[in-house]
């Protein structure tokens, strides 16, 4: 039965972690071998799985249980197709990572867990150092007790999603917290360096945060031409801005930011440093707030 193939993969993986699944793995392997040699499966593995799954579903909904029981072969085929698709996607991810340094392909700006550096996530978290804040742009009270450094990339969708955190923290703890945005233009993301340079050009004219917000607003449709249109839209001196962009005045500074990120061990954006303590990835507001409040009150939160 087709479910033997599904079982082989599923229980093969689960069997690595728990011995109780190894019996099922052996049975599905035996069953598949027999199927491949055109003999019927004699372990009742497929019957056992079908019955258990249908009975569990039937407890919640009789109709669902009946549907699974009657259409188990069809569902097994669907699972096989999904399994094959998953394996193909994993293969594509591994190939893309090896070939382009990004699991999602050369032109994608989606998050890749392997990020900039190699090594396991745990090792990389342990290896994080507080990033140099030079070239960073600060919002909020510069004398605040809590300094939050956000290391982000203008092309990164997760950095975009994290924008609301900055606004909420600054709104709620304006006197006590400040935010410094430090560029980490990920090489796998389109226009990441161009946008970082554009934001620095906007900073020359005191329009950094307004420009920063506009970039994220239009992130999905961003082009180089758009960087100039935004400058005009928010009333900047466009000739100064265009000249800044054309000369690539801040290219070296953006490279320096990137190298600072590498030196700090950054492997995902956004990464926060709350008074030097690292917080990796997009978090819920409550999580970040808990850490900020802990810093304000001097009580370390237990995560």
């Amino acid at each position: 039965m087709v479910f033997c193939i599904v079982g082989l993969v599923i229980f093969g993986v689960l069997g690595i972690f728990s011995a109780k699944y190894r019996r099922y793995f052996r049975e599905s392997l035996h069953c598949m071998k027999r199927q491949l040699t055109l003999r019927p499966c004699d372990t009742q593995f497929d019957q056992e799985m079908k019955s258990k799954i249908a009975a569990s579903a039937g407890k919640k909904s009789e109709r669902l249980g009946r549907f699974i029981y009657k259409r188990f072969a069809l569902l097994s085929w669907i699972m096989i197709i999904m399994l094959a698709a998953s394996i193909a996607m994993i293969g594509f991810g591994v190939y893309s990572y090896i070939a382009f340094g990004n699991c999602n392909g050369p032109d994608s700006s989606d998050f890749c867990i392997f990020g900039v550096l190699g090594g396991s996530v745990d090792e990389r978290i342990a290896g994080l150092k507080t990033i140099d804040t030079r070239n960073g742009v600060e919002a909020g009270n510069p004398k605040a007790a809590v300094k939050i450094i956000e290391v982000g990339c203008f092309s990164c969708p997760y950095t975009k999603s994290a924008e609301s955190l900055r606004l909420q923290i600054l709104g709620k703890y304006s006197g006590n917290a400040s935010f410094i945005f430090k560029d980490m233009p990920l090489p796998s993301h389109n226009l990441s360096r161009t946008l970082a340079e554009a934001a620095k050009c906007a900073n020359e004219q005191g329009a950094y945060w307004e420009y920063h917000d506009k970039i994220f607003e239009q992130q999905e449709n961003m082009t180089e031409q758009k960087t100039r249109e935004i400058a005009e839209e928010i009333g900047m001196n466009t000739s100064q801005f265009n000249s800044c962009m054309d000369s690539r005045k801040y290219a070296a500074e953006v490279e320096q930011d990137y190298q600072d990120g590498i030196a700090a061990g950054i492997f995902a954006t956004p990464t926060y440093f709350v008074n030097g303590k690292p917080v990796i990835g997009l978090r819920a507001f409550a999580d970040l707030e808990k850490i900020v409040v802990g810093e304000i009150t001097g009580q370390c939160p237990t995560e």
Partner: peptide, 14 residues
């Protein structure tokens, strides 16, 4: 329409 071994496994689930 149901194998006896399947029925026994389902009863076990109950």
């Amino acid at each position: 329409g149901m194998k006896s071994t399947e029925a026994a496994i389902m009863l076990d689930s109950h």
